[in-house]
Nucleic acid binder design. Sequence first.
DNA 1: ATTACATTTGTCACAATCTGTCAAGTCAAA
DNA 2: TTTGACTTGACAGATTGTGACAAATGTAAT
Lengths: 95, 95
Amino acid sequence: MREFGTTIRALREKKGLLLRQVAAELDIDTALLSKVERGERSIKKEQVMRIAVIIGAETKDLLVLWLSAKINDVLENEDYAEEALLVTLKKIKKR
Amino acid sequence: MREFGTTIRALREKKGLLLRQVAAELDIDTALLSKVERGERSIKKEQVMRIAVIIGAETKDLLVLWLSAKINDVLENEDYAEEALLVTLKKIKKR
DNA sequence: ATTACATTTGTCACAATCTGTCAAGTCAAA
DNA sequence: TTTGACTTGACAGATTGTGACAAATGTAAT
């Protein structure tokens, strides 16, 4: 579940941007963005939205991938991940 | 999404147990267990499993509710909660 | 009304996790 | 073999989570 990272990396490269350039716009260290792209670290929602603008991605698409990665962190190594997702989905639909 | 808390409270009361008694067995403060039952705080997986034994619940059922509550915390106030859940569900099925 | 007891609430300290940096490392192209 | 892009590990500071304690609230019996 590193799809958020691989997605922003692909779009960044497609735009011919360097880690250094994007990191500077986000006002973070290059090393941190590198880790984010490899799924080793996560970032804040507000930074995701800024990245979307910088690399020309749909904000919604990135936010969904970013949220999904966070859910996945919670489910990591859990036996009943699927059951819990289904229960949550049912409740979410009601709100 | 306070279902984990309301469930353990219902079972505890059905068994005629006091907060104080269950808290003592879990080796935590009564006040903390009170907050847990009302969804204001969460507890560790290992504690969930101990509660299941104490109040006579299915460990699996409680773990699913507990995990679901954690997922829900991540999704709180998120616009794309449902989309993210669906994306995650698809990936989970593959693992 | 007073007591007794269960539960709740607010606040605090400590622990654990998260966020970002820095310096040193790898790797590939020139 | 130097240069530039990226990666890695270790660290400090900030943020959040966990649990305890004391005081408050609620409630039922006396």
